[in-house]
Amino acid sequence: MNKRFLYILVLAAAAASCTEKIDLKLDSTYTRLVVDGHITSDSMAHFISLTKTSDYFSNQPSPRVTNATLSLSDGTNTFPLTETVPGQSGIYSTDPKFAGIIGKTYTLNISLPEVIAGTTEYTASSELIGVTKLDSIQAVFRSDIGKDGIWQVKVFAQDPPGSRNYYMMNLYRNHKLWSDTITKVGITDNQFFAGNYIPGADAFYINNSNKWETLYPGDTVTLELSAVTKEYYDFIGQVQFAGISIPFFSGPPANVVGNISNEGVGFFAAYSSSFASCIVK
């Protein structure tokens, strides 16, 4: 909610401001390992990708880290990961039947074939939290908002009482991930509705002006509601706003805080999800 009304200020300022590209000379820093991946309680192959940081204006795809040895541990059992294209992809996969168990804490161990930022060993841990059941969703068109109207995807669910819960939301359109970059992922905590039934709160706004992104009657829309840790919730929020500096409400820029050891960047997340679908009318 905080961010939502702060956008109001942004809008007011945007009316008066102009933007232009500039050339900047930026310095370099040493290379760090970047970890991006998650596991869920669903039985499927889960992926972890390893890359390296680069100069800010390098303008090349992130360099991959290949031939690393990765394994997951839940404290009792160890599950190895294998590189999807050995020596090439830098993406490491669990067994296709792997499923996390709610309540367990998973630790990812990474052993690199090369030294990055002074070490070859990295770890990250995340607790897998159970999620509430998603009752249903609705897609509603509002013609009075925006130039060509917007689609609102509304959520119906019970927020479990008793604790601060952190939610992540992903959207699928005809079974294809719509929220395909982290900036489109929805996040919210329950600070303002703790323990309440949510009778159709807006989870996504889809701008009808963009014909590639918008919904059409007959589309199947699926919402994935996930319960995540506070650390992952904060991480997503920080990544979404990283690089954007709105003087009205941005504090001083700061590095995104992940959960990778030894100055590694990124996040290894574990979470569980609940799904609901509807047909757009």
């Binding site: 370099s28 970047v34 940081t53 100069d55 990283a242």
Partner: peptide, 16 residues
Amino acid sequence: TFPIGRAEIGGKIFPI
């Protein structure tokens, strides 16, 4: 404070 490096997560490039 300026970026001196970058990392990529979930399709978004963010500054170090």
